[in-house]
Amino acid sequence: MSDNDPNTTEAPTRREYVKYGGAVVGGGLLAGCAGQSDSRSTPESTNDETETVTMSPVGTVEFDEVPERIFTRLSHHAGMAFALGRGDDVTALNGPAYYDATWSQFTERLPGVSVDWSDVYASWEPSKEQLYELDSDVHLADPAWVVQLDQWDTDDIEEVNENVAPWFGNSLSDRHQKPTGEWSGEYEYYSLWEQFEKVAQVFREEERYDALASIHADIIATIESSLPPEDERPSVAMITAGDVEKQMWAYTVDNPGFLTAHTRPLRPRNPFGSSFESGSTIDFEALLEADPDVILFLGGMQPDVSMTDLRSTLESHGVASEITAVRDDRVFPQGARYQGPILNLFQLEMSAKQFYPEQFGGWPTSDGGPYPEIAADEQLFDRQRVADIINGDF
């Protein structure tokens, strides 16, 4: 098949070293794998061995070689590649400039670690033709979500799988969204780190995953051992806006899914009613009615965002100034919800300090990123250790 003719589907596949094993059902659709066990078949596999990995919704995939060029759609998958030392191999990302800036605010604290995603393909609504052109070796993207885009159907998903490279991603676990069509009822949800473990298997990086997962487990254990009683925990709301006085969106921070992997373990209280839908637009009157003890500003770590200006706007507004979080000077920045493992480590630490300064030390007042310097004895994880793991020196 000619690479210049992306509509041709009858020729032999271009990625013959990638095979679906038991993941294809009648009609050529990808099967779900709800209820299947973890499929790490070769815990100490080498590049000369076939790696078999199972994850919903794609089913079981066999990789005879380690993928080199990596397509991602959402930044939690790009963050997984980054954590495995493969950040520079990412060929596509949703909002490249935005998330490149976000990651750079955190890598500032990881010696010898950097990444540049500013010029990769913007893949929020990827075209099939562009996936042929990118010629990636794996698509870390969720076909059950991609197929919901207007320009995609299940035939397109299968065509790219056969002629370019396999799909291997899970995104509807973000907030336990319901799949549509052929995946309805066959979708399994994973935590951020459960999914990261499976992605690490694809790249034969089980040891690197284990090293990072150990750090994550230590942070969670530290947090759990130091949490105050429930009645002493703050109510927390997350907001984002280009201009808070014109329009803003509010998010809950305790709902299921990996979007809250950095806040839910801290067990904050939800200031909104049970009927509130995370991601809804909200005004200052409604935010005052909820009256959170802490406000997190999503995107507040961006280099062009001034937290000082945001706080001043809230403090000078007749309604917003009455919100408990504003009165108590507890309006803090946050980085990203589609965060990946490394940002998750940082954001667990920053959230712990923002919610519980007496237990974990206070969050330094800052005017946005980069991630501030924190004294070694107040850090929840060793920056050099994480940098070494990313760089393969562990």
Rank of each mutant, 00 (worst) to 15 (best):
D393L: 11
G340N: 11
I390M: 12
A375K: 05
A200N: 09
H216Q: 02
Q148C: 07
P303C: 01
V326G: 03
L131N: 02
G185S: 10
Y20H: 07
T52N: 13
E315P: 01
D382N: 09
H216Y: 07
A122D: 15
G340D: 10
L259N: 14
G392K: 07
Q339M: 15
T180D: 14
L74P: 04
C33W: 11
S171G: 04
R327T: 09
F82I: 04
V160S: 00
Q359V: 02
S114N: 14
V138I: 15
Q201H: 09
E378L: 06
N163Y: 06
L131G: 03
K246N: 10
P143V: 04
T240Q: 15
N4P: 00
V305D: 07
K178D: 13
Q302M: 13
H262S: 15
I282S: 08
I390F: 14
Q379V: 04
R383G: 00
V115C: 01
P67R: 04
E49W: 14
T60W: 13
G181N: 08
A286K: 11
Q36I: 00
D309W: 12
R40G: 09
E16Q: 08
D119G: 06
E197C: 00
A78D: 01
Q195D: 10
F71H: 08
V331L: 08
M307F: 01
L140D: 09
E194I: 11
W152P: 01
G318H: 05
M248E: 11
Y20F: 08
T54V: 07
R69V: 08
A11W: 12
Q105E: 15
A122Q: 14
G35A: 00
N270K: 03
D231R: 06
T42E: 15
T60N: 13
T281V: 12
D150F: 10
G257F: 13
P364W: 07
V326A: 04
L380D: 06
S45D: 15
